[in-house]
């Protein structure tokens, strides 16, 4: 696997150093994970997101958790994460705000036709606005159709990229732009919608527990390969728009877990559970 990517000898002297280090010491081959961070060259190069950005941290952890980065295609959407993806060493697509699950549906089907014998993971990574508001119909229909894709929501409870407006994922009562009197309906329960829509694997996790996050991402991707759609929601608070100090992001996550307003949870279909058990068995010999 290590020699999947190689620099042509003629270009060696002009290739950027970080590109060469990806080839020499990148995560390809699938044997790297969040506990190895700091020992290998990550897929995400310097990104332009704010100091303390919860979404940037989550994205870093998600990318480090991919089981098959050399055969993963990410479909993104407009929002803060779209500013980071041009810096990510993985095939990634972004065209519009909200169309991500429809794009991923077509992409996954075409890849299945063209590469019937190769595992190609299609992973949607998009904001809460993209997933729960403007793109919700396409998100849910991709689940109804049981598209073999994994949908990951970077939930910062706001439209961060446009300056901190209310989203469907904001908490009830939150005072945000365009909700000057406070949001007057509750946070949308997308994990439960996903479960009711037939997803084989659903999880709500946070970057405060990287191992748990990694396990969710891997389970979601494995379930999408073999059983059906999967959904993972990652709470990724935004210091810029929620106006807390950049060094308090993880504290923020922990306090929300503690007061029960952000519940880490997991739903696994019987079929997916059998799959995970089988894979665990193989791994443990």
């Amino acid at each position: 696997m290590r020699n999947l990517f190689q620099v042509s000898a003629a270009f060696e002297d002009i290739m950027p150093a970080e590109y060469k280090s990806l080839i020499e010491n990148g995560p390809f081959g699938g044997d790297k994970g969040v506990t190895d961070l700091g020992t290998f060259k990550e897929l995400l190069e310097e990104h332009p997101l704010c100091a303390g950005c919860g979404l940037a941290l989550s994205l870093r952890l998600i990318l480090a958790s991919l089981p098959n980065p050399e055969h993963t295609i990410i479909v993104g959407s407009t929002g803060c994460s779209a500013l980071a993806f041009p810096q990510a060493a993985v095939h990634n697509i972004h065209s519009l705000f909200g169309n991500q699950n429809a794009v991923a549906s077509g992409l996954k089907r075409a890849l299945s036709l063209r590469f019937p014998d190769v595992v190609k993971d299609v992973v949607v990574i998009a904001g809460d606005g993209a997933t729960a508001d403007i793109g919700l119909d396409m998100v849910m229909h991709s689940w109804f159709r049981q598209e073999r894709i994994t949908t990951i929501m970077l939930d910062n409870e706001a439209y961060a990229n446009t300056g901190g407006q209310e989203s469907g994922m904001s908490q009830e009562g939150a005072v945000l732009n365009m909700a000057p009197k406070g949001k007057n309906f509750s946070k949308i329960s997308v994990p439960e919608l996903a479960w009711a829509s037939g997803c084989a694997y659903v999880a709500a996790v946070t970057p405060a527990n990287p191992r748990k996050l990694q396990s969710a991402v891997r389970r979601g991707i494995l379930a999408a390969r073999e059983t059906g759609s999967s959904y993972i929601q990652v709470y990724s608070p935004c210091p810029t728009n929620y106006k807390f100090k950049p060094n308090q992001t993880i504290e923020k996550v922990k306090s929300r877990e503690k007061d029960g307003t952000y519940q880490v949870r997991e739903y696994i279909s019987d079929e997916a559970q059998l799959l995970f058990d089988r894979l665990e068995e193989v791994k443990n010999g």
């Binding site: 169309n99 429809a102 077509g106 992409l107």
Partner: peptide
């Protein structure tokens, strides 16, 4: 044809076709 489906609306149709074409299919 190898694949075909009725999508949820025309925006989704054109987005799905876009994805399939990005993946290298003739659509």
């Amino acid at each position: 044809l190898q694949d075909y489906y009725r999508a949820e609306n025309e925006f989704a149709v054109m987005a799905s076709i876009h994805g399939a074409s990005l993946g290298g299919g003739r659509v």
